[in-house]
Design a protein around this nucleic acid. Structure first.
Lengths: 205, 205, 205, 205
DNA sequence: AATGAATGAGAATTCATTCAT
DNA sequence: CATGAATGAATTCTCATTCAT
């Protein structure tokens, strides 16, 4: 058994079989409605070009209600970004303490590519936030906390597989994945994500 | 002769030795002063969090004067980005029609890493612009026009060196460089740019 | 029955007697408040010399609220002008298809003079708009649509009363009324509107 | 001999025959150049939508030079309007002290219609100024000083021709001419100025 | 919980006017 | 005379946020 044995989708849908889509829809809180609209519009127009008005109209609620759920626009952005980060926590499971096998690394890479494709809206916002110094403050270093354990596990793997400089190699890997992500985001229709994935897997396993 | 035979720095400093710093300073037009301030502040605070007031105050001029030189804030941003892009044109010389040698590729990679370090302010703005959908429109596809010839040259090189899939390899290389750039930008003090550069050079030459 | 059988004032005041002034005041929407202030100030200072600030201060509301009701200053001006034009629609009833009697024409002229006096603010703005080429575009040709049926009816009347050149006579009549209006507007206290009205009535009936 | 015995054009061109067009052009001062451009642009775009920049560019001079000749934009407008008014002074000669003959009145009306056509730019500005309260202050009551003697002469004529109420008739005449002027200005191509002129002449002579 | 009218600080932009050269 | 770079007050408009209902 490994950290990657249970894909995100299974975990998420791991609810009682009698839970209908309709019921799920009903239970979906206003809060999630708002965040969904925010995610969509932030990704589409950028954070600064998305007004509270646009979000509440898209969510079909009033401006005032939004402020019942979120302290401010900044709070909403933070919530949207953290929601995305938390979803990644499952993928980047920090509790893995053993040694990563080749198969597990392959699985990890595959999962990462899957999230790039699946959560493109989140990644758009995420990179937008990264490159907006003032916005970056909002998110703070939460992301690094998540990434750190992952990078440790990876470093160990690389050390065990006789890579000369595991520290540098880890940074290299991180940069590579960021670059792939940003390139896919900018032109999802033309970027050969699948082929690039194969090349990354070959390179590391 | 090669595309890399005349580095930017030589061309730029290729002025008469008796040209004093003071003279240079005097000749530096107001336009450049404004763009310098804009570059600095856009990079530091992000485009949206930088007001015309901040720029003109930093440049030591009045708000109105800025509008004598630039039609709008958008025009100023465009000018700043294009200035940076044009500076890259020398590096990414599109006129190279022969076959790239190993030494030339090494030189190209080194130059690319140099600009990442030297023009960090430009790259910050550039990635900020890339990840702001509404801002991206402003710059348009000028950048792709520049990058296209470069990617062709690289593709040829990879083909000639028996890489299996030059097309994919080229995209991979581009993504890698983007990722390195973005990682360096986010934490210039801790990112091991020099070591990463060596790894990239080893990988490709 | 005639086009002039129901004067504006009767229609407007044709509300239930128990409707108190206070109630009317209460129901008067913010939108009308703003338009009232705009009408007053546009007439007093001219469109260009009236700022949004002045209007909202006069209306006792905030700047932002004005933009909840009107898209822009231009939109506000358009609304004010159209409101005035629509008020005239009752007077210049385009549905009259029979032949104008002498009494009806007399009534029409009297009503026209009444509106000149009563809606002096509107007419000030109207002539101001007419003589500002750039502002004229805003209002467009709405007014001509209204005036056209009126001029047709008048032309018929003149034809039936053996005027030699009804077309020219109609234009003459229009010019005369415009001139009277503009002269009254410029100096309401000294222009002998009543006597001029009598002369016009004598001239045409 | 009468007040109308010497048409404007003769008076204006009453210069030495050896004065060539070229020479005239040369002697045409910068001041007139500026006023010419201002007249044109004020009439075309309205006073508020015409900037000093537009005027000086049209005149082919620098902004600074304009301020050598005119104290302010207001001063320029005043000068343009007064120049037009002074041109009218010849037409509305205040020195006529005898009794107006029918022929003279006919001539006066004809001259008035001629100026409406010939000086359409001036009249556009003039009515624009009239209907802009703030702008009206600029011109002041200069125009009324001119008009007063004319109206006296006209009043006398009407009295001598047994009109019942010369005072009212004079105001009526003035309003009529204003209305004709404004209607012609708004649509010079379609307004039947010549036919209206004939009607006015018939009416009064 | 829900609404949306109301606020007002703050942003971009314009343009008449000045003044050193 | 002539220039046009430079100024900054004034204006329109935006939008996150509040609050009475």
């Amino acid at each position: 058994m490994s950290i990657f044995d249970l894909p995100v989708s299974q975990k998420e849908t791991g609810m009682s079989p009698r839970t209908s889509e309709q019921y799920k829809e009903m239970r979906e809180s206003k809060r999630n409605l708002i965040m969904k609209s925010a995610l969509k519009l932030f990704a589409k127009n950028g954070v600064f070009n998305t007004t509270i008005n646009m979000i509440t109209q898209d969510a079909g609620i009033s401006k005032g209600l939004m402020y019942n759920y979120f302290k401010s626009k900044e709070d909403l952005l933070r919530s949207v970004v953290f929601q995305g980060i938390n979803k990644l926590l499952v993928l980047f499971d920090p509790d893995h303490d053993g040694v990563l096998t080749k198969a597990e690394l392959k699985y990890f890479i595959e999962e990462t590519f899957r999230t790039i494709q699946e959560d493109i809206q989140f990644w758009k916002i995420y990179f937008s936030v990264l490159s907006q110094p003032q916005v970056l403050k909002i998110v703070g270093n939460k992301f690094w906390e998540i990434l750190n354990p992952v990078s440790k596990i990876l470093k160990n793997y690389l050390k065990n597989n006789n890579y000369k400089n595991p520290e540098i190699e880890t940074q290299f890997f991180g940069a590579l994945m960021d670059g792939i992500c940003i390139n896919y985001i900018l032109d999802p229709d033309n970027f050969p994500l699948e082929e690039i994935k194969q090349k990354v897997i070959e390179l590391y396993t």
